[in-house]
């Protein structure tokens, strides 16, 4: 675990794996420091932003964190219903050397974790994707991916909360309310949550 300076009121914690990212995020979250303004996990880092003068308290918490210690499983598991009729379902099946039905079986059979959010409000990068579904992005991204699209890219799977450009391979769509800024809990999926996909007609 390495601490990197990030301006006057933030520190970037760098670790070696998504599991360590989650361990650091969960430990800082559990400390519930009033000084912390933002706690932002990403692929291999956790960014912690504080009110002015809040960094010493954060450093004290970090000094006691064991990033190899797996935090207790979260209580929140979200289930996302998906119609598996995406425009790239056949491509994903062909690339994996399996049938489209097998792609659906693999994608619905796994339990995922929200590693981090980014790109757009409520866009959650989910880890736990079965090996055959870990595939490259499209060679040329779509200028517009419809809201609710479910796709895969590299080690991640995700659902698009709203229409944006995007290069993920799309295997289905969901009508789950992924992000609504007027709700008390605006995002359906937040870092640390568990997620399962369920096939619906």
């Amino acid at each position: 675990m390495r601490l990197r300076r990030c301006g006057t009121d933030a520190v970037l914690v760098e670790v070696d794996s998504p599991d360590e990212v989650e361990a650091v995020r969960a430990a800082v979250r559990a400390a519930a420091l009033p000084e912390v303004v933002e706690l932002v996990p990403a692929a291999r880092t956790v960014l912690i932003t504080t009110r002015p003068g809040g960094l010493p308290a954060v450093r004290r918490v970090l000094a006691a964190v064991d990033p190899t210690h797996r935090p207790p499983a979260p209580s929140r598991t979200a289930e996302v219903p998906v119609v598996y009729d995406g425009p790239d379902l056949a491509l994903v099946a062909e690339t994996a050397g399996i049938s489209p039905a097998e792609v659906v079986r693999l994608h619905t059979g796994a339990t995922y974790s929200v590693a981090f959010c980014g790109f757009a409000p409520g866009f959650a990068y989910l880890t736990g994707l079965p090996g055959p579904l870990r595939q490259p992005r499209l060679e040329s991204p779509r200028t517009s991916v419809p809201a609710g699209s479910v796709g895969v890219a590299g080690e991640y799977t995700a659902a698009y909360p709203r229409s944006t450009p995007g290069g993920w391979r799309l295997i289905g769509r969901t009508d789950a309310p992924l992000f609504d800024p007027r709700r008390d809990v605006p995002a359906l999926l937040a870092p640390g949550d568990r997620v399962r996909f369920r096939a619906v007609p």
Binding site: V37, E38, T49, C117, F123, A190, P191
Partner: peptide, 9 residues
């Protein structure tokens, strides 16, 4: 709206 960066906001 600080405090929601972990949701991509």
């Amino acid at each position: 709206r600080p405090g929601y960066a972990h949701l991509g906001v």
